[in-house]
Design a protein around this nucleic acid. Structure first.
Length: 358
DNA sequence: AACGCGTGGAA
DNA sequence: TTTCCAAGCGT
């Protein structure tokens, strides 16, 4: 099969410099006939959405250990999936992951659709992920466009139109560049290039296999591309979290968050709303177990827990109280002993809050 | 179309 | 300390 010179240059670079990743079939193994498992490709791509390779690795290994095949994940309780995902962020991905596994198991006889169009219909699979699975798992010449590809292409062709307006043009040049042979390795090669050489800051152009043909390298604009709209500043919200400790064993009182929205479906310690104009003086009035029959001694813990979400900063004041074992819990709450906390579906902000109380 | 949605590492 | 941002998706 014929490959464009540009694609060949990059594929030769990839053959020598491809990163070794737990979910990746190396170019050498590919040549020997090793075929990627679509389940592995899908799982890794969902985890990698807006998430660094370093953060994903351990989660990927753990998920494959817990659920070796897509049918295992489909059969798992959603609660277990949320627990295993805890800490990785963007928790709607975990719920969609479970729904997608069920769809593949129940409606596709356990096999992933092999076209980008079919993949696009799956929960949690958007244009990027559909193209990535089609190319990497099924060897189809789909144009795979992620943040790395946007950066590489905007520099290679000196696209000065700001994102997201430039997306159609970037998609077009990636489509034109994607070879019929080794489209999966090509997609991974462009992403590796963006991750290791064509980086957002201080790109290593001297090491780049595409440097001689790169328009932004020639004009000196490389580091300024791609152009993006300025970010909005994040407001700071404040609130309180209440760590109730059972007297006999220091078990922590937990409850479930609503299924949608921020940290949807995850576990938490009880707390106030998080608002920009919180009434800090009245925090303790919102403490749980007010009608438990015992007058609980809620005490503020020194220092404030700071955490940053996608669109706001949070400053949490932590209150702590010891609670008699006989205390009746609200119906939506449960006790979690210290030894059980690591396995709870606690997002990082809640682990920080609990940690501050100990 | 623009916004909501986590986290941790780098600079 | 603060900002930036990393293999996006759903609404």
């Amino acid at each position: 099969m014929k490959t464009s010179p540009a694609a060949n240059e990059l594929l030769e670079w990839y053959d020598r410099h491809a990163r070794t990743l737990p979910w990746r079939v190396s170019p050498e193994d590919r040549r020997l006939g090793v075929v990627p498992d679509p389940y592995h490709v899908w799982l890794s791509e969902i985890m990698l959405q807006q998430t660094t390779v370093a953060a994903v690795k351990d989660y990927y290994v753990k998920f494959l250990s817990l659920w070796p095949r897509v049918g295992d994940l489909a059969a798992a309780p959603e609660e277990d999936v949320m627990k295993a995902w805890a800490g990785l962020g963007y928790y709607s991905r975990a719920r969609n992951l479970k729904r997608c596994a069920e769809t593949v198991a129940d409606q596709h006889e356990g096999s992933f659709p092999e076209t980008a169009e079919g993949l696009l219909a799956l929960p949690g699979v958007g244009p990027y992920t559909a193209a990535a699975i089609a190319a990497i798992a099924f060897d189809q010449p789909a144009a795979v466009v992620d943040g790395n590809v946007e950066r590489v292409m905007s520099r290679l062709f000196e696209i000065t139109t700001p994102l997201p307006e430039a997306k159609p043009e970037i998609k077009a040049v990636m489509t034109a560049l994607t070879p019929a042979s080794r489209p999966g390795d090509f997609a991974q090669a462009v992403m590796d290039l963006g991750a290791t050489l064509c980086t957002p800051k201080r790109p290593a152009c001297s090491l780049c296999p595409w440097s001689s043909g790169c328009e932004a390298r020639a004009s000196g604009l490389a580091e300024t591309l791609p152009r993006k709209a300025p970010k909005k500043t994040k407001p700071t919200r404040t609130g309180a979290a209440f760590v109730a400790l059972r007297e006999s064993d220091n078990a922590v009182m937990l409850r479930r968050r609503p299924p949608k929205g921020l940290l949807g479906g995850m576990s938490e310690v009880p707390g106030t709303e998080w608002s920009v104009d919180a009434d800090e003086a009245g925090f303790v009035l919102s403490a749980p177990l007010q009608d438990s029959g015992t007058d609980l001694d809620w005490r503020p813990v020194a220092g404030v827990v700071r955490h940053t979400f996608t669109h706001f900063h949070l400053e949490l004041t932590i209150f702590r109280a010891h609670v008699p074992d006989s205390t009746l819990l609200p119906g939506n709450c449960w006790w979690s002993a210290p030894a059980e906390l690591p396995d709870e579906a606690l997002p990082t902000v809640m682990r920080k809050a609990i940690e501050a109380a100990f």
